[in-house]
Design a binder for these strands. Structure first.
Ligand SMILES: [Mn+2]
Ligand SMILES: [Mn+2]
Ligand SMILES: [Zn+2]
Ligand SMILES: [Zn+2]
Lengths: 151, 151
DNA sequence: TGACAAATAAGAATAATTCTTATTTAAGAA
DNA sequence: TTCTTAAATAAGAATTATTCTTATTTGTCA
C-alpha cells in the first residue's frame, strides 16, 4: 500500500486515534494492519474473515463499527456500489474507479485530467462540492479473456 | 419525465416488453407508470409504497423483481450508492450525479464536457469501457440553508 | 377456447447491518 | 502503581433489504 516502515505507520495510526479521541485497542490495530495491506476494496465480511485469523475472537460487529469509524475520520473511504455490502477503500488519495460488470471487482486508476475536472457553474452555485470521482463500468482483462494464461 | 402523451409511452413500453419476451402484466404497467413519473432515484421499497396505493395487493417481491428486470433490459439504471438499499434511475440518458452527504438525496446534473471525457490510454488498453459517469459528493442547497424559506 | 410457460402472491429464508446489554479495558488522575 | 470511568467490545437479538420456494394465476399464442 505505501512505502513506510511498519513502526512509522503504527505511530501515524496511534496519533490519528489520539487526534480523534479514539482508544488504541488491539482490535483497531489489527483491523488497521489488514486494511492497509489490502489493495482491494474489501467488505466488512471480507475484513472480518482476514482479521479473525490473527484475532480469533473478534466480533463481526467490532469490525463493522471500526471500519465505519475509520471512514468517519477519513482514514478510509466508503466507495460507490450498486447494491449489496458496503465496500471500503484504504486509498483515500484522489483516484478513480472502474467497476467490472462481469466479476464485480473495482479497479483503481489515476488521471490528472480527471482529478482536475471543472465543476459546472450551475452545480457550483447550487451545491458545496466536496469530492469528485469518475466512475466507469466495463469489462476487465481477465473477464474479457477467460481462457488466457497470464504471462 | 418526458413530453410524450401517455398512450405513446404505454405503446413504447408494450413494444419493449415484446422485444424482450416479457409479458405485459398489469403489475409491470403499474410499476412502469410510477417509475417514469419519478424524478427521484427510488428504492424498491419507495416504489412499493407508491404502487401499492393503486394496486393494493401487489407484492414487494414483484416490485423488486420487476425493477431488476427493467434494469436488465436497460429501461432503468441501477445507480451508485454507499450502502443500504438499491436505487434506480428512470433516466437512462447520459447524465451525472451529486450525492448530498447530509440528506442522502441524489441530484442529476448535465455537462457535455463530462459526457465526452477521454478514457485514459492505460485504462482503454486494459478494459472494455461501457459507461462513464462523474459522481460528486457535497451539500445541497436545502441542507446548506436549513432555515431559509423557499421563494 | 385451451395449453402452457411465465409471472405473481405469500411467506420463509438469507444476507447485511445495527442494536442491546453485560463485561472488559485503555487512558488519564491520584 | 493503582484507581476511576467512559469508551469499546463480544455475543446474540433485532432490523432491514433482498431473494427464494411453492402453489396459484394469467398472458400469449396456437
Ligand atoms: Mn479505490
Ligand atoms: Mn440520475
Ligand atoms: Zn472482471
Ligand atoms: Zn441535502
Amino acid at each position: 500500500m505505501q512505502g513506510k516502515e511498519p513502526n512509522t505507520l503504527l505511530q501515524d495510526f496511534i496519533e490519528k486515534c489520539q487526534v480523534h479521541n479514539l482508544k488504541v485497542t488491539p482490535q483497531r490495530v489489527a483491523i488497521y494492519r489488514e486494511l492497509f495491506d489490502s489493495t482491494e476494496h474489501p467488505t466488512v465480511d471480507a475484513m472480518f474473515q482476514v482479521v479473525k485469523k490473527k484475532f480469533p475472537n473478534i466480533s463481526y460487529d467490532t469490525v463493522s463499527r471500526t471500519m465505519l469509524t475509520f471512514a468517519e475520520i477519513g482514514m478510509v473511504d466508503l466507495v460507490e456500489v450498486y447494491g449489496g455490502a458496503k465496500r471500503f477503500d484504504p486509498n483515500v488519495s484522489n483516484h478513480h474507479h472502474l467497476h467490472c460488470v462481469s466479476c464485480g471487482k473495482i479497479f483503481d486508476f489515476h488521471s490528472d485530467h480527471y482529478n482536475n475536472l471543472e465543476i459546472p457553474d450551475d452545480v457550483r452555485r447550487a451545491f458545496t462540492v466536496l469530492t469528485s470521482r469518475v466512475v466507469l463500468k466495463g469489462i476487465c482483462e481477465k473477464c474479457s479473456n477467460p481462457g488466457k494464461i497470464s504471462p
